[in-house]
């Protein structure tokens, strides 16, 4: 990881206009990604993690979705203002994605070779033969046995873990600057999860790729990520270096999350901790702190106003009135 910022998300807002009202899936999100960094995004289901990432490459389904504001600066250029043609040159080339479900993310009607080669020829200008050689090399790196043979097979001939390896090989085949992995292991069983994460870590550090890793699991974040964004109801609750956040979580939500991770070394008789209540419905949220109904340390202002961001120094930011001295 270097100091060079390659991706800067500034005040991103993505809304969905549905019959019941406006879903503010992402509402005022900001973070930086440095070259070679691995950034974790954690949050409960529905907190807007996937929408954030689809917004970055401007692939929000519209209608009903719409990016209502903000900037996504990739190498200084705003991706949200680019022409479709320009952004297509970035997708799959400079910024590529891996999705949650490897069983459905590959086209069942096309051979692996077709699907890999089309990306490589599109972005690298190689001919079919060279592209196929490149694809085979990537499959080998991703740990697919006898890739020369398997490349001509169809997705259904691969297991879930193998398909995710194929997805990784495909997404790294154009040597991207950024790999966005949206819960790349949630659909796999536990032993395979660890293998896939190891593979991702090894390949991306070898290639110097920055990674945005979306996950539910704090365990995964602790093992993989330099920095961490904790998302709650479409906004960032807290962000900063992973080890600092784990050592000293500031936001009551982060504290709850870390407490609710089961630990083998702690008292075994205790019940598992869980944050009470349900994540909020993000339709027509009032301008309050969305976490206050579940928070143990609420104050008056929490019900009236969304907290401004407090800079805690050394790259740590928190959105919580507890740390904000100017108001109250």
């Amino acid at each position: 990881m270097t100091d060079e910022v390659i991706l800067q998300v500034k005040n991103l807002r993505t809304y969905f206009h549905v019959d019941e009202g406006v879903v503010k899936a992402v509402d005022g999100l900001s973070f930086d990604l440095h070259r070679g960094e691995t950034l974790g995004i954690v949050g409960e289901s529905g907190s807007g993690k996937s929408v954030t990432n689809l917004s970055i490459i401007n692939m929000i389904p519209s209608p009903p979705g719409k990016i209502a504001g903000g900037e996504v600066l990739f190498m200084g250029k705003d991706m949200l203002k680019m022409s479709t043609n320009d952004i297509r040159k970035i997708r799959g080339n400079k910024i590529s994605m891996i999705f949650q479900d490897p069983m459905t993310s590959l086209n069942p009607f096309l051979r692996i070779s077709t699907q890999m080669i089309e990306t490589i020829t599109l972005h690298q200008g190689l001919d079919e033969k060279a592209a196929k050689a490149k694809a085979i090399e990537m499959l080998k790196l991703a740990g697919i046995p006898s890739p020369e043979k398997r490349i001509d097979q169809y997705p259904h001939q691969f297991s879930g873990g193998m398909r995710q390896r194929v997805m990784i090989a495909m997404s790294l085949s154009c040597d991207p600057e950024i790999l966005i992995a949206d819960e790349p292991t949630s659909a796999l069983d536990v032993t395979i999860q660890a293998q896939i994460l190891d593979l991702m870590r090894e390949l991306t550090s070898r290639l110097g790729t920055a990674v945005i890793l979306i996950t539910h699991s704090l365990g995964v974040v602790a093992g993989m990520c330099d920095n961490l964004c904790v998302m709650y109801a479409g906004r960032i609750a807290e962000r900063g270096a992973t080890d600092k956040i784990f050592a000293d979580p500031k936001h009551p939500y982060t504290q709850g999350l870390i407490k609710s991770v089961p630990r083998l070394d702690k008292a075994s008789g205790d019940r598992l901790f869980s944050i009470r209540g349900q994540p909020p419905n993000v339709i027509d949220l009032p301008d309050c702190c969305p976490f206050y109904p579940r928070c143990d340390r609420t104050m008056d202002i929490c019900k009236r106003k969304y907290p401004t961001t407090t800079d805690l120094g050394s790259g740590r930011f928190v959105n919580c009135w507890l740390y904000n001295s100017e108001e109250k």
Partner: peptide
């Protein structure tokens, strides 16, 4: 068009026409 593999095809940077002709129509 709403399927995961079409989302993958778009995320790879394919033109919409290529997405439709190559990835959508057959299925």
């Amino acid at each position: 068009l709403r399927s995961d593999y079409v989302r993958t095809a778009r995320a790879k940077g394919l033109k919409e026409s290529a997405v439709v002709l190559k990835h959508v129509l057959k299925g």
